[in-house]
Design a binder for these strands. Sequence first.
DNA 1: CATGAATGAGATTTCATTCAT
DNA 2: AATGAATGAAATCTCATTCAT
Lengths: 211, 211, 211, 211
Amino acid sequence: MKNKPKKTSKTRSQKRVAKTRRKLKKAALGVFSEKGVEAATVEDITDKADLGKGTLYRHFADKDEMVFTLIEDAIEHLIERLRSYPDEPQTLEDVLEHFLNAHYDFFAENSEEFILLFQGRLFLKLQSDTSEDLEEPYLRYLGEIESHVSQYVSPKIDPAKIRRLACAIAGFISGYFSFAMIGMDEDEIESSVKPLRKAFVRTLCTFLGRD
Amino acid sequence: MKNKPKKTSKTRSQKRVAKTRRKLKKAALGVFSEKGVEAATVEDITDKADLGKGTLYRHFADKDEMVFTLIEDAIEHLIERLRSYPDEPQTLEDVLEHFLNAHYDFFAENSEEFILLFQGRLFLKLQSDTSEDLEEPYLRYLGEIESHVSQYVSPKIDPAKIRRLACAIAGFISGYFSFAMIGMDEDEIESSVKPLRKAFVRTLCTFLGRD
Amino acid sequence: MKNKPKKTSKTRSQKRVAKTRRKLKKAALGVFSEKGVEAATVEDITDKADLGKGTLYRHFADKDEMVFTLIEDAIEHLIERLRSYPDEPQTLEDVLEHFLNAHYDFFAENSEEFILLFQGRLFLKLQSDTSEDLEEPYLRYLGEIESHVSQYVSPKIDPAKIRRLACAIAGFISGYFSFAMIGMDEDEIESSVKPLRKAFVRTLCTFLGRD
Amino acid sequence: MKNKPKKTSKTRSQKRVAKTRRKLKKAALGVFSEKGVEAATVEDITDKADLGKGTLYRHFADKDEMVFTLIEDAIEHLIERLRSYPDEPQTLEDVLEHFLNAHYDFFAENSEEFILLFQGRLFLKLQSDTSEDLEEPYLRYLGEIESHVSQYVSPKIDPAKIRRLACAIAGFISGYFSFAMIGMDEDEIESSVKPLRKAFVRTLCTFLGRD
DNA sequence: CATGAATGAGATTTCATTCAT
DNA sequence: AATGAATGAAATCTCATTCAT
């Protein structure tokens, strides 16, 4: 009855699928960062996406997978930023400063992803001593940080120390943005927070330098 | 004619009530800080407290009221610390340094309360520009910080700025403790983080100084 | 330790017990007639009686027994009224007129008991065809009515007919009191409703007369 | 661009929704009239409707809303009957007689709704002197009765009197049906109760006539 | 594919009943 | 005997997930 041509429509339909998926992820990200993952209902998400509830289940096995996917995406975006140095770093300080900038930019432009990653969940995850229950994307994130840092420190660095570093950075950035979030404009932040960042980088170097 | 013998018998039973209530709050605090408020079930709490499910409802109207009570308590404890200066502060720097110490001690000795307050929820609350939906205990906390600081700065300080300050401190402390949380020992923290704290205090002073 | 004399106190303590029981029944009657038996909680009752919740269970095995007891009492009071004719009845009409008066007085002076008996529950009970699940007090009530009427009608009266009669009276009285309840004063009722009552009695006679 | 195809597909699914809702209401009405509103559980209803427990909550916010809806429906049906006179009424007696017939028919054909309305709840509601807590549907019912009667009585009739009238009718009908309910067949009722109805109508006229 | 009505497991909450004081 | 804190079975209600259309 529907006489839509089926031959050439594949690309078109694939596009539509991708678009729907994107709408869902965008809506979910918004809802999760606003209400928290637990409190957000599937209906919150699909309402926001202006889609049917069942549609979510055509794109994601369940709510957990959706969360997982969003976290993966977010980590991916963060890692991308970690990898793109504006200039070749010369020292450990350069690397760490870049890390802070990368996190900063990530927050500024992907604040919902930032919140998803660092609001509560990540801290709780990272604090658990045994890394075994850290999920894969978080491990990738830690591994990424490690790989950048490892070449600047004495060869056999304690893996736990890397994790501490990552936590420190994430935590600091969270705190750091309490400034930014509240309505200080760019310049204000730049002028008032820069010394803070400098001090922090120095502290991290000291931390890594000891052994 | 009615001579209710309430004086003598109450003490004992009141104690029991208070004990039960304490057990519930302790268990709830543990469960909330471990799994998050949303994910924790009433049964998790009462199981941990080794009490019947219904008992929780004799002491709290519902789960929400329990969360609210715990937050109130935690804020109360934090405010107590804010008020007890070891020495009379002479400068704004003294006050701010004391704030950081107070938050630190609070975290060290009431880490579960700290997590309850600062993990996720507080950030979300404090970020909302309009203070109208900040709940009473959080407002008390902000007010407390304001009252300490106000006497050291030019009389007509922008109230919004005070809030930013409080947010900055809360945020910074959260980040700050990413160190402590991960297992650095006291000395490590002391030696490596002290400069960071100094820098932060200086930054805050600058921030408040400008107008 | 307690040096209350135990010899002579029995009567006194028995009185106290009786008094407490009376307080409980009075409170329960009030709550039941106001909120309905199902909706009334044990605590509603003991609060109203200004007694502890446990006390109720010293006097009644459970809530059901309490309801049963109250119904028994109410039926007892109603039956007492049915039995006390002002004048020796001469005809079936006299008996029925007396019934209406008795129910009327019962309602006027024991309205809570009336409501307990006739509001919903009784109708539902009495309507069920098989008498087997009619509880004992209700059967007593029906039996009482039957015994008064039986001598005025042809010997082998259908038991179902008796039940219908009882229902009719109870129903009529309920309806009847929609007048009284709404604020008509005695005289108004007397003058405007009397013919109604007369007609009703005549109807009942006709009903019983047929066979 | 968005061309939601809601026109064609809705009819079918809307029908299904309506059917489910009807099934729920029918089951609820049965359970409520059988066990009473309080005693009936949500599961009783959904079991009887052969539906899942959650389904009820897709159609009604909660149990209370369901009860309210059923009451509203029942009042609606009753009012419909009140409005459809077989012949144009000429006198107040005609109107009142029609009222009694309408209630009778309502009971005969919607006995469960009748029981829901008049079993217990309505009396309790209508008896409260101040109309402020009479819920909207009950007020509609009273208003309907009032509007029919008002044109036949002296212009400035006391509103309270109208309410008394409505209560009297409702009450009388309840009582009246204690006959019908018990298993008298149509003819029996017709022959034995008709004079009663006549007398009642005359009484009501007298009541309204006085001032 | 998209939909949203239906589902039921599991959460929250109520309340009759028990029991230590 | 009186109490009311504690209890847990059973109620209400939520929401992730399924499935017929």
